[in-house]
Computed example of a mutant assay.
Amino acid sequence: MPLTPETLTRHELVGLDVEVVAASNPDAIGISGSVVMETTQLLTVERDTRVWHVPKDSATFAFDLDGQTVRVEGERLVDRPARRTANAGDSKWR
């Protein structure tokens, strides 16, 4: 399945450029860089030599897909990456 704005939440996020555009913690707004790691609850974003751990459930992210900005509510990303990207079974992400 190709990576498109519609399928973004079902794909691997590591390597994508992202910016935090809204968050319950005002200090997190504006964090941007590349996703270097993802866990159930966190996205790890790195830019230059800085690394941030941003909770998924309390932020809204803007991902850059080939020049197109795709906004995603972090609550839609909360799950183990392997389960979220699953193509079979009763995945709620299908």
Rank of each mutant, 00 (worst) to 15 (best):
M1Q: 08
M1I: 02
M1E: 08
P2D: 10
T4W: 08
T7H: 10
L8F: 02
T9E: 14
R10Q: 11
H11A: 08
H11L: 05
E12K: 14
V14N: 12
V14A: 13
G15T: 06
G15V: 03
L16C: 04
D17V: 00
D17L: 10
D17K: 15
D17Y: 04
V18G: 07
V18P: 02
E19V: 07
E19I: 03
V20E: 08
V20S: 08
V20F: 03
V21T: 15
A23N: 10
A23Q: 08
G30H: 06
G30A: 10
G30V: 04
I31P: 00
S32M: 07
V35Y: 04
V36S: 14
V36K: 15
M37A: 12
M37P: 00
E38T: 02
T39N: 08
T39F: 00
T39R: 10
T40L: 11
T40H: 12
Q41D: 06
Q41N: 11
L42M: 08
L42T: 00
L42D: 02
V45C: 04
E46Y: 02
D48F: 07
T49L: 15
T49S: 14
T49G: 08
R50P: 00
R50A: 07
R50Q: 13
V51P: 09
W52R: 12
W52C: 06
H53S: 14
H53K: 15
V54K: 12
V54E: 05
P55G: 08
P55T: 05
K56N: 01
S58V: 05
A59C: 10
A59N: 11
T60H: 12
T60V: 10
A62I: 04
F63C: 15
D66H: 07
Q68R: 12
V70K: 14
E73W: 03
E73N: 09
E73D: 11
E73L: 11
E73R: 13
R76S: 09
R76L: 14
L77K: 06
D79C: 06
D79A: 14
D79W: 02
D79G: 04
P81S: 08
A82C: 07
R83Q: 12
T85S: 13
T85H: 06
A86D: 07
A86S: 09
A86Y: 00
N87P: 00
A88N: 12
G89Q: 03
K92T: 07
K92F: 04
K92G: 11
K92N: 11
W93E: 07
W93H: 11
W93M: 05
R94Y: 00
R94S: 02
